[in-house]
Write a protein that binds this DNA or RNA. Structure first.
Length: 112
DNA sequence: GAAATGACGGAGA
DNA sequence: CTCTCCGCCATTT
């Protein structure tokens, strides 16, 4: 465990903070945990995280695609769990409106 | 210690 | 819009 516990906990907290029915990019999660440019670290921690410990399915790539190979087992699982929360993919992507903290103020200004 | 790898991200072509 | 290429960081080979 080369990754320190405080770091891991900060990231786990950020993931748990993603509201139901919303998603967040790896980079956004890292930034929220106070760790800019650590997107890849988030991915590694999710991979090692105990199953059921956190809502990992709400973490996706910044472009709206899932991080797994399309139609692979984990890919299908994630899509299902998201769909169950109302987050649906269109054209293999998750529309920007489902992102939790992206352009929060700008979104409010434009879309209310 | 160099090179490759990966649940990433952004700029270009 | 799709596809590459490169930067980024921590870990592995």
């Amino acid at each position: 465990m080369t990754t320190t516990d405080p770091i891991r906990e900060a990231i786990f907290a950020a993931v748990r903070a993603i509201p139901r029915g919303r998603v967040a990019a790896y980079g956004e999660v890292a930034a929220r945990a106070g760790l800019p440019r650590r997107a890849r670290l988030v991915g590694r921690l999710l991979r090692e995280a105990p199953s059921g410990a956190l809502p990992w399915h709400r973490v996706v790539r910044s472009d709206g695609r899932l991080a797994f190979p399309p139609d692979s087992e984990p890919w299908l699982t994630q899509r299902e769990r998201l769909s169950r929360e109302g987050v649906v993919m269109t054209g293999g992507r998750i529309p920007a409106r489902f992102f939790a903290w992206r352009d929060e103020d700008l979104d409010a200004a434009l879309w209310g």
